[in-house]
């Protein structure tokens, strides 16, 4: 059935930020993006802040989805690591757990080997954080606590009053 809704609280957001800010330094990268497999941007760090990260997130998810489809055709479950090499900048994309994508943008100041090494450790940390988030979301869903239970029809209508 439905996956659990992704709900991000401030403390979890901060935990993710700490991991990716450290990864930016450890991997000598230009920028890091954490993206949901459905194309939602979750967090970002590094000197690329300010670029069109919404599009980046959507296209990354599309790319992962397409290669995931390819993987199944050749009998693989997933292709969990992708590397795109450009003239100046490169992209290293990794699947973390079942629903998160970690994108590292790096140039000649770093190397594929270093990025791979650092991503391995950071990816494991992120996977643990997202497992916690998912558990919390399940508990919250079961207890029925949500700020949106209080939304009225008027609130929704007001959104569309031009």
């Amino acid at each position: 059935m439905f996956e659990t809704q992704l709900v991000m609280h401030e403390e979890d957001f901060q935990k993710i930020l700490v991991v990716i800010q450290r990864l930016v330094r450890d991997a000598n990268s230009k920028g890091i993006f954490v993206v949901d497999k459905n194309g939602q941007l979750i967090s970002e760090a590094g000197e690329l802040e300010g670029i069109d990260s919404t599009s980046l997130a959507s296209l990354t998810a599309g790319c992962i989805a397409a290669t995931g489809g390819l993987a199944k055709i050749v009998g693989e479950e997933e292709f969990p690591i992708h590397f795109h090499q450009g003239q100046r900048d490169n992209l290293h994309i990794t699947l973390v757990g079942s629903r998160i994508i970690l994108v590292v943008v790096f140039d000649e100041r770093s190397s594929l080997g270093l990025v791979r090494l650092r991503v391995k450790k950071a990816g494991a940390e992120l996977a643990r954080i997202f497992e916690d988030i998912e558990q919390k979301a399940k508990l919250e869903a079961a207890s029925g606590s949500s700020p949106f239970a209080e939304i009225t029809d008027d609130d929704i209508d007001n959104l569309f009053s031009d």
Partner: peptide, 15 residues
Amino acid sequence: MSFINYSSREINCKI
């Protein structure tokens, strides 16, 4: 699958 972000106080939905 909507994404509710309390940190940035955003709801993201896919249509």
